[in-house]
Design a protein around this nucleic acid. Structure first.
Lengths: 139, 139
DNA sequence: CTAGTTGCAAATCATTTGCACTTGC
DNA sequence: GCAAGTGCAAATGATTTGCAACTAG
C-alpha cells in the first residue's frame, strides 16, 4: 500500500511539486521516520527549490489529512512518518536516532483494559521505548 | 515520602531559595504535572523574584539529579513532575488535561522483553494513553 | 481566472546561555 | 572569601506566519 497523488486529491490538497516530492521522500526513506529538517536536507540534495517553511506547512497539512503521524520523541523536534494505517509503537535509539517499530498485542490489550477501568475513551496512545541500540553498544 | 532540602544536599546542590521554592511548588500542586511556565506563574503569584531562566535551570538540574521527571507530551512544551521513585505511565484526558498515573506489571515486562529481543539497552520509556475521561464524557 | 500554494524573511515559542552580580557554606 | 547560583537580556533552535509572487485546475 503506497500513498500517492490520489491521496492528496482525496484530502482536498492540490497536487503540487513540493507535496509530491515530500510524499515521495517519506515513502522512500530507509528509516521511515524523518524530522522536517531531514526532509528539507533531502530536498536540497535533490536540488529542489523548496523552502523549509513549506516543508513544515506540508507536513502539518499531511498530518491534518491523516496522511502522516507526528511523534514527539525526546529531543526537542518532531518526527514524521507516513500513516499506512497499521498502528505500531516505537523503539528509539537515544544515541544514533534509529527508530524501529513494533506491535505487541498483549500490551495493546492491556492498555485498552486500563483505559476502560479508569473510565477513559481512548483517542490515541503512544508508547516509546528509549535505549541504546545494538550497533551503538558495540561500535 | 516527601522530597525536601535533604534531597538537594544529597544531590550536591546548594539549598537556595529558588530551589526550595520550586521543590515546594512541585510538591504542593494539585495536579502534580507542571510545565516550566506553570511553575513560573505560581512563583509570580507568590511575589517571588525568581526568573524564568532560573526555573528552567533548576528543573533541568533536578532532572539530572533524578528528583524530577521530564515528559514530552503532545503540545510542544515539557511537563515536569517530582520523581518519588515509583515508575508509572500516564492516562491523559485530551479534553480537560487531567493526568492519571498507572502501572501495569505485564506491560512493563513485555517492554523489557521487546527491547532485549531488539538488542536495545533501555534507558527510559514512556507510555501515554490519550482519551476522554469519565467526567468529560458525562458532564 | 483565482483560490490555493509557495518562498523568503521576519516573527514566535520554548528553552538556553553569557555575564556581571549575589549568596550559601 | 569564593565557588556556586541567580537575574536579565540576548542568543538559540524549532516551528509559524505575513505577504507578494506563482501555479494548478
Amino acid at each position: 500500500m503506497t500513498l500517492d497523488n490520489a491521496n492528496l486529491k482525496k484530502a482536498g490538497l492540490k497536487v503540487t511539486l513540493p507535496r509530491v516530492k515530500i510524499l515521495e521522500i517519506l515513502e522512500k526513506a530507509k528509516d521511515h521516520h524523518l524530522s522536517a529538517e531531514d526532509v528539507y536536507r533531502v530536498l536540497l540534495e535533490s536540488s529542489e527549490d523548496i523552502g523549509l517553511a513549506t516543508v513544515y506547512r506540508v507536513l502539518t497539512q499531511f498530518e491534518e489529512a491523516g496522511l502522516v503521524i507526528r511523534h514527539n520523541f525526546e529531543g526537542g523536534h518532531s518526527i514524521f512518518e507516513l500513516d499506512h494505517g497499521r498502528h505500531h509503537d516505537h523503539l528509539v535509539c537515544v544515541k544514533c536516532g534509529r527508530v524501529e517499530e513494533f506491535v505487541d498485542p498483549i500490551i495493546e490489550e492491556r492498555q485498552q483494559e486500563i483505559a476502560n477501568k479508569a473510565g477513559y475513551a481512548i483517542t490515541d496512545h503512544s508508547l516509546n521505548i528509549y535505549g541504546i541500540c545494538g550497533i551503538c553498544q558495540h561500535p
